[in-house]
Amino acid sequence: MSLMEKFADPALIDTLTSGEKATGALITTFMGMGITFVVLTLLWGTIGWMNKVVAATATETTGAPTDGVNATAAFLTGQAADSVQADEQLVAVITAAIAAYEGADRGTGKLVVRKITRVKSQASAWANAGTVDCIKTRKF
């Protein structure tokens, strides 16, 4: 009977010497750590491969090369459309909202939006999606 077979049997563990117990414990530890390392390496490789696939898909969709993180965010949120047209529409919507807020009777019609700068969010796409979901659940 091998050391690991004795180590696995609770009835035989008391018959092992301290050295055999230490050796069994080390073998068990290294096996567990080795399996964990192999699985994490496989996960890391799979995620890297998926990142490249998503980046290639986003490049084919938009025609512009992107890095993997932005391509993944664009792919997941569906924002792989033409950004120039989207920015022009955003400027038009913001201008219309400001004009509506100011009101036609109060303003003199001299409102001009000269520049709108998009601010980079420090939050990830997942955090933004969670925030939007949380806000949507609070509406009446």
Rank of each mutant, 00 (worst) to 15 (best):
M1N: 11
M1Q: 07
M1T: 06
M1G: 04
M4Y: 05
M4Q: 13
E5R: 12
E5Y: 05
E5I: 08
K6N: 13
F7A: 15
P10Y: 10
P10W: 06
A11M: 06
A11D: 09
I13T: 03
D14R: 11
D14Q: 08
D14P: 00
L16N: 00
S18R: 08
G19H: 02
G19N: 03
K21C: 06
A22G: 01
A22I: 00
T23V: 00
T23F: 01
G24P: 03
L26S: 06
T29H: 09
G32S: 14
M33N: 08
M33V: 09
G34M: 09
I35K: 11
I35V: 14
V38I: 15
L42R: 04
L43P: 03
T46D: 01
I47A: 10
G48H: 08
G48M: 01
N51E: 03
K52T: 12
V54D: 05
A55H: 04
T57E: 13
E60K: 14
E60L: 04
T61A: 11
P65K: 10
P65L: 04
D67T: 09
G68R: 14
G68W: 05
V69S: 02
N70K: 13
A71K: 07
T72Q: 01
A73V: 15
A73L: 10
F75L: 13
L76W: 02
T77G: 05
T77D: 07
G78D: 08
G78V: 00
A80N: 08
A80F: 09
D82T: 00
Q85D: 07
Q85K: 05
Q85L: 14
D87H: 04
E88H: 02
Q89E: 04
V91M: 09
A92F: 13
I94W: 05
I94K: 12
A96M: 14
A96Q: 11
A99Y: 04
A99K: 15
A100Y: 10
Y101F: 11
Y101N: 14
E102L: 15
E102Q: 15
G103L: 00
G103W: 07
D105S: 15
D105N: 05
T108Q: 12
G109I: 01
G109R: 00
K110N: 10
K110R: 14
V113A: 02
K115V: 00
I116F: 09
V119H: 01
V119M: 12
S121N: 08
S121F: 02
Q122K: 13
S124N: 14
S124P: 03
A125T: 04
A129G: 03
A129E: 12
G130K: 13
C134I: 02
C134E: 02
I135A: 12
K136F: 01
T137L: 03
R138Q: 13
K139S: 07
F140V: 02
